[in-house]
Simulated scan of single mutants.
Amino acid sequence: MWEKFPELQHDLQKTVQLMEEILHLKNKQVEAAILEMIHSGGKLLRPAYQILFAQFGPEKEPEKIIALAAAIELLHTATLIHDDIVDQADLRRNTPTIRSQFGNSTAVYAGDYLFVSCFKLMADYATSMKSLQMNSRSMEKILAGELGQMDKHYYTEVSIEEYLENISGKTAELFALSCSIGALESGSSQLFAKKAAEIGHHIGMAFQMLDDILDYSQASQKLGKPVLEDVRQGIYSLPLLYALKENPEDIKPILAKKAAMTKEEAQTIFTLVHETNGLQNAQVLAEEYTEKALKEIAKLPNRPTGVKETLLEITKMILHREN
């Protein structure tokens, strides 16, 4: 997706190269699995936003920008590895997960190793203590979002507000961190960094909602995971929550079966979500967050030339996607 943006593509390639260089595990099989995960089709969105927001600041330090972008992606990859453990997932981006190849214990250590690698890069390259504080607080929010979701497994009374709170930590926080650290570490004001964080938050919220919407509208081979797997694991996302509000009588008895839900019953859930306009209502809310992000990006400075336009184009691309 980055071919239209050659300079950014070059920086992202350097980001991946740095990640490859700093990964040194004694267990070479696990190291290879982590590298395979890094190369398995992730969009590198978070480091991309970090790099772009760094362009607005007066301090141009390419080595630091790339290092912090790598730290952001290492943090993201660590959270994915741990997510797969919690979700007992066998596939990620159509690739076997580390837990499915080596077991949960090894996967936990692999994720922890990436957390440490992230903080090492931050400690080596971040010039502001504020950035380290932001990084640690963001990790806290990410974990709180994950724990909030776990706490509501198989709980059919989850409110839209609770869902929004959980994805605010689980997904939006890392987008916010990417944008704000990019701005702050390039010498932008704390006020500008705060605005960057708000933009990242809106993007992350819409991005997660769209992922949840795609679970009800795309084939599993496009998503890289079995369709409605979240439902069968007791994770009730936005389209289903809207459907539950409209038709609890037909949906709750199926959900009550929990892990014993059959593929046919999952398909019934899929149909009911569509019939109750759960998908459309979720799309409306996702679009609201998308428009908030685009509106705030449009207010950004016009210099350096082309950065704002690139941000607008990329954000439209990822938030108007169909697969």
Rank of each mutant, 00 (worst) to 15 (best):
Y113G: 07
L184W: 08
C179A: 15
E140L: 03
N135E: 02
D212K: 04
G145S: 07
S168I: 02
R137A: 09
L174V: 00
L184F: 03
G111A: 03
L177A: 01
I203W: 06
I142D: 00
S188Q: 14
D215Q: 08
S186I: 08
S220Q: 13
L121C: 07
D212P: 07
L191C: 06
L184Q: 05
K222D: 08
G204K: 13
M150L: 15
Q218Y: 01
T156I: 12
Q218P: 00
D151T: 14
G182F: 10
K194P: 03
H201L: 15
S220F: 13
H201N: 15
A193Y: 04
M134W: 09
H202L: 08
S138M: 13
A144G: 01
A144E: 12
S180Y: 06
L164A: 10
T127A: 09
E185L: 04
E162K: 11
G148N: 11
E198T: 12
K130I: 14
G169R: 05
D151Q: 15
A123N: 12
S131A: 04
G145P: 01
A144R: 05
Q190P: 02
F207G: 03
K141W: 00
G111T: 01
E162D: 15
L210M: 09
M122T: 02
I203S: 08
S189R: 04
I203E: 11
Y216M: 09
L214N: 01
S217N: 04
K141L: 12
I160N: 11
L191D: 15
S188G: 04
K130Q: 14
G182L: 13
G187H: 01
E173G: 02
D215W: 03
Q133V: 12
L114Y: 00
F207I: 00
S189L: 00
S220E: 13
G182H: 11
E146W: 08
F119D: 02
E161G: 13
S188T: 09
S138P: 01
G187W: 00
S186F: 06
A110Y: 02
M139H: 08
K152V: 09
S128T: 09
S159P: 12
K170N: 04
M122L: 14
L177R: 00
E165L: 11
S178D: 04
I199L: 13
M150V: 06
G148C: 12
A126Q: 03
Q190N: 10
I199H: 11
I203A: 06
S188H: 06
V158N: 11
F192W: 05
A110L: 07
K141V: 02
A172I: 10
K152S: 15
K222Y: 08
D215L: 09
M134E: 01
L147Q: 10
L132H: 01
V108I: 15
K222V: 10
K194R: 13
L177C: 00
A196I: 00
G148F: 05
L164S: 05
L177M: 07
D124H: 13
